[in-house]
Design a protein around this nucleic acid. Structure first.
Lengths: 174, 174
DNA sequence: CCGTTCTTTCTGTAAGTTATGAAATGTGCA
DNA sequence: TGCACATTTCATAACTTACAGAAAGAACGG
């Protein structure tokens, strides 16, 4: 499969973006390719298009399936697995956000609660206070996040719009 | 400086968390140490406490200052620079969020607009549509983010609370 | 079943990154 | 100005991660 200039640009940028957020470059590129292509693509074609080893593509697809971002499709008369991602960017973003929260934020909450309890027990007043602030922050953020993922983009826009007004009205800006 | 069990736990976890989000482990650990300590600490003490090279601490502190997370303080009768971070977790989170948006999301917006224009020019209808959806998503998210960073935790909680209600009321959930 | 095709797993190596210690530079005091 | 202390820079070593290619495994068709 031959990529257009536009597609190449998008895929490369997406790869770079991935690395900055702790996501493997190839994984991100494969996802970008599937997104921009918009139809099921067999693994060997992905490998050829991106100029990476077939095995690397296999691993990346597995990873993407683990995130729920990619699903397998089959075409009549073709034994090969084909892979596709979703068109709904918002939905994909949520998948990743929810999963990262589960993997990274939730354990942090656990750690903070444990550390706080220990600081309490050991009478470390200063640590306890700071850990408490941190925990409180994470709890607020988590709460906001839970609401956030329930929203559609339209709902989000409305909430933001009214939220800004609400904020001014109530004078809770401080 | 001798760390308590609680402090060690917190610092190590913070370091791991950092690596997962593309932030250097030592950088994150130094920040955690400063946060949990809550007072200005000289660089050599940081190095000793974390068992890392003095030069590594120097680099990490510079990085943290670049993010605006750490500032220098001086103590009377001590020529050494001392370093401290802020107590306000919310404020620090915003600093990082704003900066990462600037460094990573803004260039993505630029790329998407360029790619979209090019797809338009080259008559790539399918690509254009998908890039358009992606751009729209990023624009909505950016907009929401701009409002978000203006809020205090209290304001955020209120907006979330009323936002949920608003959403149901307006039936914009789809 | 056997051969073919497709996919995944495994392993050595390359690439990239991070950390170190030494050297260089900077800073303030006598 | 010279000395002592403090900090930064830099080359290299240590480590980590990513990748390709080989080999094994699975699915299918004849």
């Amino acid at each position: 499969m031959k990529l257009t200039a536009t597609e190449t640009k998008f895929i490369l940028h997406w790869g770079e973006m991935g690395t900055r957020w702790g996501i493997n470059r190839t994984v991100a590129q494969v996802h970008a390719l599937l997104y921009i292509t918009g139809r099921p693509v067999p693994a060997d074609e992905i490998a050829e298009t991106l100029s990476v080893a077939r095995s690397n593509v296999s691993t990346s697809l597995r990873e993407l399936q683990g995130w729920g971002l990619v699903k397998v499709a089959h075409l009549l008369g073709d034994r090969r697995d084909h892979f596709e991602t979703f068109h709904d960017v918002w939905a994909m973003f949520k998948l990743v956000a929810v999963e990262r929260k589960r993997r990274e934020v939730d354990p942090t909450l656990v750690m903070l609660r444990e550390a706080l309890a220990q600081a309490e027990k050991d009478g470390e007043k200063a640590s306890k206070e700071r850990l408490g602030h941190m925990l409180e922050f994470f709890e607020t953020l988590t709460e906001a996040f839970e609401e956030f993922v329930k929203m559609s983009p339209g709902a989000l826009r409305k909430v933001v719009k009214y939220g800004g007004k609400l904020q001014k009205l109530l004078g809770v800006g401080t």
